[in-house]
Computed example of a mutant assay.
Amino acid sequence: MPTLGLIHNSPMLAAVFNEIAARVMPDDVKLLHFVDESTIKNTIAAGYLQKSTMRQVIRLVGSAFDAGCDVAMVTCSSIGRAVDMAAELYDQPVLRVDRAMADKAIATGRRIGVVATLPTTLGPTAELIRRVAMEQGRDIEIVEHLCEGAFDAVMAGDGATHDRIVGEGLTRGMEGVDAIVLAQASMARVVASLPEGAVQAPVYSSPELGMQRAAEVLAGLKAREAGR
């Protein structure tokens, strides 16, 4: 049975990815969830991705493979650099949840907006888009927007303030862009709540696109195995 290991920084994400898997994954794919909240909490506290957290991410990826996973995908964008390192250390596929989102945005247009509620996520997401564009020989411009105060509001239980700040970022902060990338998947529900036409550009979020990419990778492994 093909097995996908999902490495999360919050236990709440397991249900989110189970729901997406039910729509985009073949019935024979098995999911295993691995959760370690320290990876994001330590990154936020430090303000950057520490070496100790990088080592922990690499260990988590190894644990997924030790548990029998064929592919591992890390669902947090803030620790993407550690995922890239893990991909070089293991023979099995190691995926970033936001890579497919970056590919999609770059294919859509030249001026790409990146919206985040945390600087520790904004920077790595913008860096990924720049790197992917360079790999593909694309000339792009990135417009970064940090929704200041939104993260603190949602952590304090004030979802309405979070949604208002993010909504303003998606509308006024993203005028004139060709595509919008959500650095955090939690912002996707704000897009759905805005009036039709309020956001002028296509908006891309990582979980759905990431899971579609994981399904493609698993299908490729299965095909190669069948061809042996």
Rank of each mutant, 00 (worst) to 15 (best):
V166C: 06
S206E: 11
S193V: 08
V154C: 07
I165R: 03
G173F: 11
G176W: 09
S193E: 14
Q212R: 15
G167E: 07
R164F: 14
G227E: 07
M155A: 09
G157M: 11
G227K: 11
D139F: 03
K222S: 06
A226H: 01
A226R: 12
G176F: 06
D152I: 15
E216S: 14
Q184N: 10
G149C: 11
R224L: 13
R172W: 11
G169V: 00
T171G: 12
E135D: 14
A153F: 10
A185M: 10
I142Q: 04
L209F: 04
A226M: 10
G137T: 01
G159Q: 13
G197H: 03
G137C: 02
G210K: 06
G137Q: 03
I180M: 08
T161W: 06
G137E: 03
V199M: 14
L170K: 10
S186W: 03
P207T: 05
K222Y: 00
A219I: 03
M134K: 07
V190A: 05
G159F: 05
M211Y: 06
R164I: 13
A156V: 01
L209P: 02
M211F: 02
Y204E: 05
V177P: 02
R164A: 15
D152T: 15
I180G: 08
L218D: 01
V217I: 11
Y204R: 08
E148L: 14
E148I: 15
Q212M: 12
R213G: 00
G176D: 12
E196Y: 08
E225C: 00
L218A: 00
E141T: 14
A201P: 03
A226F: 04
P207N: 03
E196K: 15
I165K: 02
D163L: 13
G157Y: 05
K222V: 00
I142S: 02
V154F: 07
R224G: 01
V191H: 06
Q212T: 05
V181M: 04
